[in-house]
Computed example of a mutant assay.
Amino acid sequence: MGVMRLRIDLAYDGGGFFGWAKQPTIRTVQGEIERVLHTITRVPVDDPAEPLRLTVAGRTDTGVHASHQVCHLDIGEETLSRCVGHMSVPPTVALKHRLQRMLPADITIHDVTVAPSGFDARFSALERTYVYRVADRASEVDPRLRGFVLHLDADLDVAAMNEAAAMTIGLHDFGSFATPNPGGTTIREVKTAYWRRIPTRPLVVDGMGERYRTPAAESDLLCFTIVADAFARNMVRSLVGGCIQVGMGKRSTDWFREKMAVPLRESSTGPIAPQGLTLEHVAYPADDELAERAERIRAKRTL
């Protein structure tokens, strides 16, 4: 029996993790899932023939959340079949059930499926969507959301922030707002980026009209949504930090424009707090374009 590739769709509350990437002595999302995978499959952690190593669409930093993350796993067919046990379900469904039962409550498995030919969770991705949520002075702060919203006691100029955000759209070197991986670059293509306040909607609407004006949980929050083909390390949080400095009047839009034009990293363009950031979506091309996409993205970028 051969090796097969699985696609795993998942979500997690990043507040209790030191990021995605596995590290030897601290709690990470990858580390927790791989630990449980070895327990479920009864494969020794140090088995070189079956490493059970996850490859993720986008590594998230300490404290950053994901409502829809994607990773892939290469696993022996015989190993996967052992997950079924006494269940009358396909092996992928059995693995999903066992993962969900054994993983901690701050990780949820949406689905486990056999990946199509050529699929690579990281390199096949067309785009990723992140949202950063802020409760400013104009927001009705809901204490239940404190784990994934940044609270700011400030009035923000949303129009100025959107003027800055618009400068990020297109192919740019984000060297002022990001750190390259070894051997990589900070050149990325942003497809859309904007700030928007979530409207307040009535809780109940029926034949009698609007009955209650109790806001939904996210009503009045100020959200930054950004879509790009990929993101460099700390890129989204640093762009958010820059926009908020503009929105608070501490920096001008001309300053932001200069930082985009001259990719030079310095203290004023560092990342803002992580808890407001969530990876919301990862998009992939049609199955017959997956391998070509992965090959093209592996090439080092230039402007």
Rank of each mutant, 00 (worst) to 15 (best):
A273S: 11
A193C: 13
M161E: 00
D206S: 07
A232R: 03
C71M: 11
E295K: 13
P116T: 05
P182C: 02
L145R: 14
Y130Q: 01
P90N: 12
A273N: 10
C243T: 05
L264P: 00
V114N: 03
G31H: 05
L152N: 05
T192N: 15
I169H: 07
P104G: 02
P116M: 09
L203S: 12
F119A: 09
M87V: 06
F123Y: 13
G184H: 11
E210T: 05
E140M: 13
D61I: 09
A21N: 10
D111V: 02
T186N: 07
L303S: 01
C83K: 14
C83A: 14
G14N: 05
D229M: 03
R53T: 11
T214G: 00
L73P: 10
A115C: 10
F177I: 02
D287R: 10
T39C: 11
T55H: 11
A165G: 12
P143M: 08
Y130M: 02
D220I: 05
T62Q: 12
Y12S: 07
F177H: 11
Y130T: 05
T79M: 01
L10T: 00
R211G: 04
H38V: 07
E258N: 14
R265D: 01
H110N: 00
V204M: 07
L156C: 13
A94F: 11
E140R: 15
H97E: 09
A286M: 15
W255I: 02
A94C: 02
P263W: 01
G276I: 05
R233K: 14
D9T: 11
M260L: 12
F18D: 11
R42V: 03
W195S: 04
L99H: 10
T253F: 02
T225M: 09
A193Y: 02
F231C: 03
G242I: 02
V89W: 06
E50Q: 11
V112D: 02
E140C: 09
W255E: 10
D74N: 14
P51Y: 06
A291P: 02
V29N: 12
K22H: 03
G16E: 04
K259R: 15
R298E: 04
K96M: 08
W195M: 07
E127P: 00
G118C: 09
G15H: 03
V89S: 07
S81M: 13
M4F: 04
K96G: 01
A294I: 05
L171H: 03
C71E: 03
E289P: 09
G14R: 07
R59G: 09
I226G: 00
E295V: 04
E218K: 15
H65W: 13
D173K: 08
G19P: 01
L73G: 12
G63S: 06
F256K: 03
R298M: 13
V282R: 09
K259H: 06
G76N: 10
Y12V: 09
V134N: 01
R122N: 08
K300R: 14
R5K: 14
D173P: 02
W195E: 01
T214K: 06
S88H: 13
P91K: 10
E189K: 15
R301G: 07
A66G: 05
V246C: 08
G19A: 04
I109E: 01
P199W: 15
D46T: 09
F119Y: 14
D9L: 02
